[in-house]
Computed example of a mutant assay.
Amino acid sequence: MPKEPSWLRPHGTPWTRSRPRVAYENPWLTVTEFDAVAPTGRPAFYGVVGFKNVATVVLPVHEDGTVVLVGQHRFPFADYSWEAPEGGAPLGEDPLEGARRELREEAGLEAARWREVLRLQLSNSVTDEAAVGYLATGLTACAQGPEPDETESLALARPPFREALEAAVAGHLKDALTVAMLLRAYHMAREGALPGDLARAMLG
């Protein structure tokens, strides 16, 4: 891993927090309120959405340079979203196990090769949600096919990588993890961080 540049070092005084109060909780998240002191020394009131899972996202890439995306209706924005297979791993579970599970359940695929390629903080001003992204290759279909949750009605697409990337850049794909993974995979293909045959298939 490259050495961290000196400009990435923290500056100043961190936030201090006290008197946490749970305002709301369900099986997936907790909303906690804090009395806090800002880095400027000013008193503040803060609310944090704490997640009980680490988000996982998988970009499945076939040898011919196509990728697998999952389509589904999403509740918060009341819209339809095409995404890389994603979900969550409970805190304490290896995120890779969660990613393997999501790939099987949502896309009906197994992967011979897994590579962690991205770690992200999602909306870090108000939540503590973290994400881990994996590139999955050596794909084969599961005998039983996809096994979505009882609330999921999923569709599958297998576009060429470049087509999916262009859809993301154009704003047609809006899921942040999917966009990040497509851009990361493009960077890897361009920078020689992927096998040559696969990179050529993706970029061609």
Results as ranks from 00 to 15, higher is better:
residue 6 S to G: 01
residue 15 W to S: 10
residue 17 R to V: 03
residue 22 V to Q: 10
residue 24 Y to R: 10
residue 26 N to L: 04
residue 28 W to V: 09
residue 30 T to H: 03
residue 31 V to A: 13
residue 32 T to M: 05
residue 34 F to C: 04
residue 36 A to N: 10
residue 39 P to H: 13
residue 42 R to W: 03
residue 42 R to A: 11
residue 43 P to C: 07
residue 43 P to A: 11
residue 44 A to H: 14
residue 44 A to M: 12
residue 47 G to H: 12
residue 48 V to Q: 14
residue 51 F to S: 08
residue 53 N to L: 06
residue 54 V to R: 13
residue 55 A to N: 08
residue 56 T to N: 10
residue 58 V to I: 12
residue 60 P to Q: 09
residue 61 V to H: 06
residue 62 H to C: 00
residue 62 H to T: 02
residue 65 G to M: 02
residue 66 T to I: 00
residue 66 T to M: 00
residue 67 V to F: 04
residue 68 V to W: 00
residue 69 L to Q: 04
residue 71 G to L: 01
residue 72 Q to W: 02
residue 76 P to G: 03
residue 77 F to E: 11
residue 77 F to V: 06
residue 77 F to G: 01
residue 78 A to D: 15
residue 78 A to S: 14
residue 83 E to M: 15
residue 84 A to K: 04
residue 86 E to G: 13
residue 86 E to S: 13
residue 89 A to R: 08
residue 91 L to P: 00
residue 92 G to E: 11
residue 93 E to T: 12
residue 93 E to G: 00
residue 96 L to D: 09
residue 106 E to V: 04
residue 106 E to P: 01
residue 109 L to Y: 11
residue 109 L to N: 10
residue 110 E to L: 15
residue 115 R to T: 10
residue 116 E to G: 03
residue 116 E to N: 05
residue 117 V to W: 04
residue 120 L to W: 12
residue 120 L to D: 09
residue 122 L to F: 02
residue 127 T to A: 05
residue 130 A to W: 04
residue 132 V to S: 03
residue 134 Y to T: 03
residue 137 T to I: 09
residue 138 G to E: 04
residue 139 L to H: 06
residue 139 L to V: 04
residue 143 A to L: 11
residue 145 G to E: 02
residue 147 E to K: 13
residue 147 E to F: 08
residue 147 E to N: 12
residue 147 E to V: 09
residue 148 P to S: 01
residue 148 P to K: 04
residue 148 P to N: 02
residue 150 E to F: 06
residue 157 A to R: 15
residue 163 E to V: 13
residue 165 L to E: 02
residue 167 A to M: 14
residue 169 V to D: 12
residue 171 G to T: 14
residue 175 D to R: 12
residue 176 A to G: 07
residue 176 A to D: 14
residue 179 V to R: 15
residue 180 A to M: 11
residue 182 L to V: 13
residue 182 L to R: 15
residue 182 L to Q: 14
residue 184 R to M: 06
residue 188 M to F: 13
residue 192 G to P: 05
residue 194 L to P: 05
residue 195 P to R: 12
residue 199 A to C: 08
residue 199 A to H: 12
residue 202 M to H: 08
residue 204 G to S: 12
